[in-house]
Amino acid sequence: MALSETSIDPQLYLVEQTRWRPAEIVFWLATLLPYLLFPNYLSLASQIAIAALFALSLDLILGYAGIVSLGHAAFFGIGAYTAGLLSKYGWGEPLSGLVVAAFAAGVVGYATSFVICRFRHLALIMLTLGFGLLLAELANSLGWLTGGMDGLQGIHTWKLLGTFPFDLYGRAAYAYALAVLFVLFLFTRRLIHSPFGLSLRGIRENFVRMPAIGAPSRAHIRTIYTIAACIAGVAGALLAQTTETVSLDSLGFERSAEVVVILVLGGAGRLYGGLVGATIYLIARDQFSGIVPQYWYFWIGILLVAVVIFLPNGILGGLAQFTARWSRK
């Protein structure tokens, strides 16, 4: 979106953006509510936090830099398998596992970014889709390493910080996932409200003109793509560690598609889009499938169609429009 005030000082604008709004503080305090109100839903809450982190990483490239990806699960899967394999072969310490997973996903992200930064739009969809499928097939054929169709067996995650075990109720799992989500969110927030983040939005709007005003489009895209890959890898590693399972679905097409749906639902190009989208999508999924295990996709479909028709910029986009109209009156 273009700025409404055109003659604003860019630095002041960015500083203004980084200020914490009351709604944000309420949002993050609300993430602690499951411990008080829904102690039986903590494992769902932890999977929501993980999906939110994954959607946040996609938002960086899709929402801010305009890189359409249908293969983002590749990095999620690399992170998941890295953490899973580390644990299987004797190193189940969760935090260091995250770092290694982020590194592994980042390396692959950096390597592929050289191709990604040369294409836009439709070609990108095909490229990322193809890359995702290639990786999924590779994991399938490396059955001796990945466990193939049956998934990786023998993952055991050590206690968090050496004290908190990952229990059946998901208490540690949620705290862990939420803390990682929060830290990486802070990082993302800072990044987006930096001159670099601003130039990403410029690249999204006009790829060719940005280099003319001193922002090298391709280099910026390589950077953000690598960062997004790292964060997606962390999300995958979190899922592998908290559930102690990894299987081919973690890098399958469906996961790539689902995260796009989550982001579009919440609102792409908004920091909280992925977070809100993941919360609503996964809770709706859980509730609908609890009521009708066979036909719940029908209701998810209705929800998506309704959101796209009535709130074309996602739930947050719709909310923003609504409040803007309301405050003008």
Partner: peptide, 9 residues
């Protein structure tokens, strides 16, 4: 409960 296919987590 529905898993919607192969989905171990």
């Amino acid at each position: 409960k529905d898993t919607g296919g192969i989905n171990p987590p």
